[in-house]
Each structure stands twice: as structure tokens, then as C-alpha cells.
Amino acid sequence: MSGQLERCESEWHELEGEFQELQETHRVYRQKLEELTALQTSCSGSINRQKKRLKDLKHTLQRYKRHASREEAELIQQMSANIKERQNVFFDMEAYLPKKNG
């Protein structure tokens, strides 16, 4: 066999080894991407459920506030402040999640 052909065969075997590594790396990448996508979907869903429930709670508190005693009004005020703070936390969380297209 000529020296040139031997070099080509050697190059082919080297490429074959790199290709096998690439295939394994790509398989791991796809697996991690699927895991990431599932986590993103789970986080988005949980945030949306929490936001809806907090919104409903906020409206209920506002209705109740009209007829509340002083102690109850203070509790409602505290809960309202906590709701607002929680909404800011959700905003920060959503900054790390992918945005929905248009």
C-alpha cells in the first residue's frame, strides 16, 4: 500500500473516532436539552398558576378590606405587601425563562 493511501486510512480512523465522540456528545446534549425544556415548562406553568392564585387572593382581600376591623385591615395590608413582593420575584424568575414568540 502506498504511503499516501496509508495516511488517508489513518486519517479516516482518526475521523471515525472523533465522529463516535461527537455522536455521544450530541446524544447527551439532546438529553440535557429535553430535561431543560421540561424544567422550563414546569417553572412557567407553576409561575402562571401562582400568579393567577395571587391575583384571585388579592381581589378577595380588596373586597374583604371594606368590612374589616382594624386588626384585619393590618393583616390584609401585610398580605398585600407580600403579594406585591412575590410578583416581583416572579418577574425575576421569568427573566431567566424563554419568552413566547409573538
Rank of each mutant, 00 (worst) to 15 (best):
L75H: 14
Q40L: 06
E72M: 02
S10R: 14
Q77C: 06
E21G: 07
K51P: 02
E16H: 09
R63C: 08
Y29D: 08
T60Y: 08
E72Q: 05
E11L: 11
R49A: 11
F91P: 02
N88V: 03
K52I: 04
A73P: 01
A68R: 03
R66S: 10
I47T: 04
K32I: 01
K58R: 15
L36S: 05
R53H: 05
L22P: 07
E18D: 12
K58I: 02
G17P: 00
S10K: 14
E9R: 15
M79W: 11
D92S: 05
S42E: 09
F91L: 12
E6M: 13
K51F: 09
K100V: 07
M1Q: 06
E71S: 13
K32T: 00
S42C: 11
K52A: 13
L57C: 03
T41Y: 01
K99R: 09
C8K: 13
E11H: 09
Q20M: 08
N48R: 15
F19G: 00
E9D: 10
E72W: 01
Q87N: 12
K84P: 05
D92R: 15
T41G: 08
L75G: 10
D56L: 12
K52G: 03
E35V: 06
S46G: 05
L97Y: 02
R63A: 13
S42R: 15
M93I: 08
F90H: 12
T41H: 00
S46C: 08
V28F: 03
S10L: 10
V89I: 12
S44M: 09
S69P: 02
Q87A: 07
L15K: 00
E21N: 10
L5F: 01
Q77I: 04
K55E: 14
E24K: 06
Q50V: 13
Q40M: 10
D56V: 01
R49G: 07
Q78M: 13
E18N: 13
Q77W: 11
A81Q: 13
E21T: 02
S10M: 06
A68E: 00
G3R: 11
K32Q: 12
K52R: 15
S69C: 03
E21I: 05
N48Q: 14
P98A: 00
E21R: 08
T37Y: 05
S2N: 15
